[in-house]
Design a binder for these strands. Sequence first.
RNA 1: GGUGGGUUCGUAUAACGGCUAGUACUCAAGAUUUUCAUUCUUGCAAUAGGAGUUCGAUUCUCCUACCCACUACCA
Length: 498
Amino acid sequence: MKRTRVRFAPSPTGPLHMGGVRTALYNYLFAKKNGGDFILRIEDTDSHRFVPGAEQYIIESLNWCGIIPDEGVGVDGPNPHAPYRQSERRGIYRQYAEQLVNGGFAYYAFDTAEELEKARAEAESEGRTFIYNATTRGKLRNSLTLSGEEVQELLTSRTDWTIRFRMPEGRTVQMDDIIRGHIEVDTSTLDDKVLWKRADELPTYHLANIVDDHLMEISHVIRGEEWLPSLPLHYLLYESFGWERPLFAHLPLLLKPVGNGKLSKRDGDKMGFPVFPLKWVSPEGEVSRGYREDGYFPDAFVNLLALLGWNPGTEQEIFSMDELIEAFSLDKVGKSGAKFNPDKAKWFNKEYLRMRSDQELTELFMPVLSAHGISAEKSRVQEIVALIKERATFVSDFWDIAWYLFKAPEEYVQKDAAKFWKSENVLMAREALSATASAHEMEEYIREREWPMGKVMNCIRLALTGSSNGLGIADIMRFIGREEALERFRRAEERLII
RNA sequence: GGUGGGUUCGUAUAACGGCUAGUACUCAAGAUUUUCAUUCUUGCAAUAGGAGUUCGAUUCUCCUACCCACUACCA
């Protein structure tokens, strides 16, 4: 049997967004599940849309997620099909395009951008849509309508011609998609796509894609649903070359959380969640947040992405990468677009945070503490982390949850003070606090006297933390000590009016 | 407009012709707790509409509606 080889082939036109990461992930899982290769190829055939830094961003993102290519751009190991950057492969495409011309499957087109623009505008004014195919190509300037000498002349004198695919007439292309099943399309609705551009000596996506997939011995093409409309062309290209084609699987789109449409950069900014794996600063200086910088764990991110459009068929939701590889299969991938749910994303991270060891979380929390000007002993911090980890979604929550274990409150929440800082409460609280040596004793003291536990405790909590919610008094006192507790209470008495 | 794809609770999904349509997130209520959070329990909530095939349809077929993608010398 043929070896499984898949590729992720992004275009470096900007940061890779989470939909792209998911496509890469599914390719990776499929490859690993089948003991095959996962290849990273960069499709930079559009010189006008190149964005500096985008390629590096793609590599870093995949690396952060643990989606490691076996072959391709950024891989140190053996790269038998190098180069994997299409701009570096430009020399190989022209011959293939010309092979199609010689076989009668393609032709030279000399229409200028202006001429095509005019034809489109004309058609539109008549209520039609211009389509470059069998119905119009006979009236346009190309090697099918011009004489051999004219063609030769134009080929050498001009540098703005293209090679177009000659879309056959009256055929129904029969296709099969692993996810969507059998699909048929009539060629009369398709157009003569440009395959190669003389102007920059580069192929367009369609040609480069087919040639490279063939040369790199790709067995399965797993890509986004937006490519489904060009599948007939790709089928026809394989047929014209006489090549065996790979199997295709078109993944459902990732949709925005509310409303309709593809998930886009704007949605994240608007709704307060990242759309990109990593923070991205565009060449213009525009900043987009990333999952990594927002405090997500890479394995949580991968887990939530995996479950957007795929399900294991069981009720398991938490998967390590190895478990995903084991469980993954394309026939469990859904057909309909998946709306991204930020709440569920947070839930995943919360689950992953709980699974992290106290030691690891402590290492992550230490820099946060220093950033707040706190220097604390690691062993002490680790005890605190153990106490608060299940209250947090992100490591960054730790500070908000437990800052008062590191420093005294400067101010008090008005509403809580109004509710609990009352003379009778303060009297009881002061007595209980000063008459006992530990939180445990204090609790006994209050109970014996049948004082209202809630009122007294919240009064103390207000003095210790500045608000009426937070950790148990016993835990707080264990960390700050009795002296500090008494001091904080004294200060509250000075500052708060009854 | 044309072509293709899609449609189960608000969201992600399960149920490969046969249970009371299941689970998770969110939300609500209750229990626990000195507060908050956690935890536990319970609850709200769906097969887009219409025909057909069938003993029986969420599942198969057709029509309608709605949504999405594509329709570049972009990928």
